[in-house]
Write a protein that binds this DNA or RNA. Structure first.
Lengths: 225, 225
DNA sequence: ATGAATTTTCAACATATTTTAACCGCCACC
DNA sequence: GGTGGCGGTTAAAATATGTTGAAAATTCAT
């Protein structure tokens, strides 16, 4: 489970619920606060988990700007301000205080999610997309393969071939298809070459190697079983 | 040792000691003054070293506002005013005179330190945030690279290439990508020239050179391991 | 502007790794 | 029980990178 949590601060319950639903769908954890004071308390208690704050400007007790200032005294956590229409004149003021983004109400959930993801992506490296296929973890950015938490060295073809199989999890792939996708389309050679690579990959995957199944007469398939 | 010195001006010895202790712990040098006149004297004598002044408002002989005004006549040194509760109405007045921050007594040491660091960070270049990649420290402003506290001479391309790798820590970069980002986009030459530079950089990085990994068939990747 | 010093690029060779082809023996399927 | 497909193995071929040094380009100082 992702331990990336977003703190949503808004005095309207409906608004919080709306935001919450969308962000949870994206796999983030959510914490809520209904006013500025609560926001500060919740933030202090969950400092390490909170990777982003969505902060409404207009709130009872302590408004968004005050919360922002307090938090900025000793934290650089990204903050997105939620402003009602017509409050734009404050933007400059806010940027000086370290506001990362503004979203003005009413907003489309799509925009909200997009901005949240954009900010989190640039601030939380742990968000890198790692896919886990039954103990086999592949990181396309770093071009690394990890099996049961141990990094495995893979050559170019090995990596590409494995990735192709994983991307097509559960689908039987013919040798032709594999050749056309992993090798250059103009490769004209023995399709038995694939077998050699499969063998090496299976070996490197250790006990997970059996996830690569042979489909007699066709080719191979990756399936976790 | 840092030669950043903070001048603490307050008539209460206890208060000065409190502040002093915390800032010394953070590695700053401290100068003290017990009243406004002394403050001006000490400031004049240590003008070049003093990078920040913490200035109490209420003081005998010459109050904080007068000191502020005097200093502002020919110096832009950042000043944080220490105000007693209930003096907030003066804030606007102070900002015009070039007050950078207010901290109202009583304050938590944490807040004090946080604000001091925030201001120094943006005003004292020598405090600039330097990123440390496993012993390799890069300063984009100064265009310098330090390995295990020893500065390394880097040529233009070497620096740019290393910086690009560091900026993309953990990401495998193809030669194409590297060429397009580090060289001018219209460079048409041998991509093997990258290798030459990599070799030189690795050599200069010494034992840290191994953090630059070659991804066979792709290019290179920087990763601390 | 000129020459010196440095940096960058390139070419050539050395090494290392990957890919491929070829062969063998086994096993599944008819 | 034959047979064609597959896995395993091996070594040669192909490719990629490391290394070196010198030419070309650029920068710098005079």
């Amino acid at each position: 489970m992702s331990d990336i949590t977003v703190l949503v601060v808004d005095d309207e319950v409906r608004m919080r619920k709306l935001i919450k639903d969308f962000l949870i769908k994206k796999g983030y954890g959510i914490l809520e606060a209904g006013d500025g004071e609560e926001a500060l308390t919740v933030f202090e208690e969950n400092r390490n988990k909170i990777k982003l704050i969505l902060l409404d400007v207009m709130m009872p007790k302590l408004d968004g700007w005050s919360v922002l200032r307090q938090i900025r005294q000793d934290s650089k956590v990204p903050i997105i301000m939620l402003t009602a229409r017509g409050e734009e004149q404050d933007e400059l003021f806010g940027f000086e205080l370290g506001v990362d983004e503004y979203i003005s109400k009413p907003f489309s959930p799509k925009i909200l999610v997009a901005r949240v993801e954009a900010i989190l992506k640039r601030t939380s490296p742990e968000l890198k997309e790692l896919k886990d296929y039954g103990g086999i973890v592949i990181d396309p950015e770093g071009r690394t393969v990890t099996v049961d938490s141990k990094q495995i060295e893979m050559s170019l073809r090995e990596y590409e071939l494995l990735k192709y199989l994983l991307d097509n999890e559960g689908i039987a792939l013919s040798r032709d298809k594999i050749l056309n996708n992993v090798w250059n389309y103009d490769y004209y050679g023995d399709s038995r070459t694939i077998d050699s690579h499969i063998k090496k990959i299976r070996h490197k995957l250790g006990k997970r190697g059996k996830y690569i199944q042979t489909i007699r007469g066709i080719g191979y398939k990756f399936e976790i079983k």
